[in-house]
Design a protein around this nucleic acid. Structure first.
Length: 288
DNA sequence: TCCCAGGCAAGGC
DNA sequence: GCCTTGCATGGG
């Protein structure tokens, strides 16, 4: 079968305060930032600004040239996963079915960001039974109220800063019934739980550890595994993915079995596959 | 007004 | 173990 997507990285170079990609396949700031993996970014008139921990970058695109402007080139080179070629997996997935071909075509600019594990854990605790706009609102309030002011805005709060807030503080920032979950998690990390040990674990062990946090269930754990730990053999199942499954895939599985079903189907391509389907369904799947 | 959102914890069986 | 219920909040 004819490949749909280029697999060649044509040109990339860095300067002291920028990364420049020329005719770079599988990179779209819009797809990357609006596919639901990150909550701290803003659309600008000519691109996007992105916040990660205490770092900041601006991404612009013009005439097939992407420019990432930042004080920390090394951080954002890794953040945007620029050493990974997404072409091969795009082609594998697109060949699987019509719905996947459409989803990959629509979201081919997506890349899985290398984000901070702690920021992902707190952010996705907030995400439970919530919508993306309001998650962004709450995460921004956390940063503005507890985080350190930087040249460009506010850093995501450190563990110490998160642990300085009370349940009532988190509630006041709009966290709702998730306020005690944020509080418990902050205290647990402050009191010595070392999240970095998860880097050395396989997916199953790391999931088990994540599930020990209050407010972390199967779906939030899978998001942290995918976006915080870059585990690919996971498939976070939320309300959008349930719609995708029931609309387009072989039926016969209970909702609690959907994640396993997709991982068994797509293996190491599952994580990225999930992002294409999520992004596609949210765009075209009725009413929002 | 009701429904929904990147679900989870707790309680009943 | 599986199933049901309640849950803060803001936007459509």
């Amino acid at each position: 079968m004819q490949p749909f997507f280029f697999t060649v990285i044509d040109m990339i170079y860095t300067t002291e305060n920028s990364i420049v990609l020329k005719d770079y396949s599988n990179f779209s700031a819009k797809d990357i930032l609006e596919c639901g993996q990150i909550f701290r970014y803003n659309k600008l008139s000519d691109g996007y600004e992105v916040f990660s921990t205490d770092k900041y970058a601006v991404v612009t695109e013009q005439d097939n040239v992407v420019t990432i402007t930042t004080d920390d080139v090394k951080y954002f080179y890794n953040f945007f996963d620029l050493d990974t070629d997404y072409g091969a997996v795009c082609n594998r997935l697109a060949a699987r079915s019509d719905i996947l071909r459409q989803a990959v075509e629509y979201g081919k600019g997506i890349r899985i960001l290398n984000q901070d594990l702690t920021e992902m854990l707190f952010s996705f605790i907030i995400s439970a039974n919530n919508n993306i706009k309001r998650i962004q609102l709450i995460v921004n309030r956390l940063s503005e109220n507890l985080g350190t002011k930087t040249k460009y805005g506010y850093a995501f709060p450190t563990v110490e800063q998160m642990a300085s807030a009370s349940v009532e503080d988190f509630a006041r920032m709009g966290a709702g019934y998730r306020a005690p979950y944020l509080y418990d998690t902050a205290q647990k990390l402050k009191n010595g739980y070392d999240l970095s040990k998860l880097y050395t674990m396989d997916t199953e062990m790391a999931r088990k550890e994540l599930l020990s946090f209050k407010g972390v269930g199967p779906k939030v754990a899978d998001c942290v595994l995918l976006f915080g730990l870059k585990k690919q053999d996971v498939f976070p199942v939320d309300t959008w993915i349930k719609k995708v499954y029931h609309n387009y895939f072989e039926q016969g599985h209970k909702d609690s079995e959907i994640a396993c079903y997709f991982v068994s189907q797509f293996g190491e391509d599952a994580g990225l596959c999930q992002q294409y389907l999520f992004y596609f369904q949210r765009k075209y799947g009725q009413t929002n």
